[in-house]
């Protein structure tokens, strides 16, 4: 089922059915996007649920100015950025290190902890600030065009290019330090 068909159903009053189709079509993509940002299954799952809850509550406000896919990714990305900012603040208040907390969550994932290079990449991503993390993961894993990223993150494509370049340098530096 295409995006336009889902929207057609929604506009025709079949709100529930359109929403179910959205969940089936976009959950996997949204989950992997969220998982790359928060790096932990439990957190990514919570964020995915919150994203769908927010989508359900604001479906009536979707006017179709942007693509449905873009709108969904924007909601999910904002959920993840808010979560990451709160987690950092909470860690700061409890005088612990947010990065260390994420490292221990990554270590629980057998697929990652078995591979030294993968582990170094995940550690490097964990160190990035939330917004830069979004830019890096969208570009690196999903190879999303800058124009599409600009629509989701509501910033210019040129600033995203600079942000990705900067994030990639940080990741390379961090991996080098860990692997040397």
């Amino acid at each position: 089922m295409e995006e336009s068909d889902i929207l057609e159903l929604f506009r025709g009053g079949e709100r529930q059915q359109a929403f179910n189709l959205m969940i089936r079509r976009y959950s996997e993509g949204l989950y992997w996007h969220l998982r790359s940002m928060v790096q932990c299954h439990v957190d990514a799952d919570d964020l995915l649920q919150n994203t769908w809850l927010r989508v359900w509550n604001s479906l009536d406000t979707f006017r179709g100015d942007s693509r449905l896919y873009t709108w969904l990714y924007r909601i999910a990305t904002n959920e993840a950025i808010t979560f990451l900012n709160r987690s950092r603040q909470r860690a700061m208040l409890s005088l612990s290190s947010y990065t260390r907390e994420v490292y221990s969550k990554i270590a629980e994932d057998d697929n990652l902890s078995a591979d030294r290079i993968q582990l170094a990449l995940q550690h490097a991503i964990a160190k990035l600030p939330p917004r830069q993390k979004a830019v890096f993961t969208m570009r690196y894993y999903d190879e999303m065009p800058y124009e599409e990223m600009a629509e989701i993150l509501e910033v210019s494509a040129s600033s995203l290019k600079a942000s990705y370049h900067h994030a990639r340098e940080k990741v390379e530096q961090s991996m080098k330090e860990e692997l040397d």
Binding site: W32, R35, S36, Q39, H41, D109, D110, N111, L112, D115, I117, Q118, L121, Y140, Y141, E143, R168, V171, E172, M175, K176, L179
Partner: peptide, 16 residues
């Protein structure tokens, strides 16, 4: 490191 990062295998998410 640049080469490692550009390796298509690295771009596949390895999360369980």
């Amino acid at each position: 490191i640049k080469n490692i990062l550009d390796d298509p295998k690295m771009k596949i998410r390895q999360y369980s």
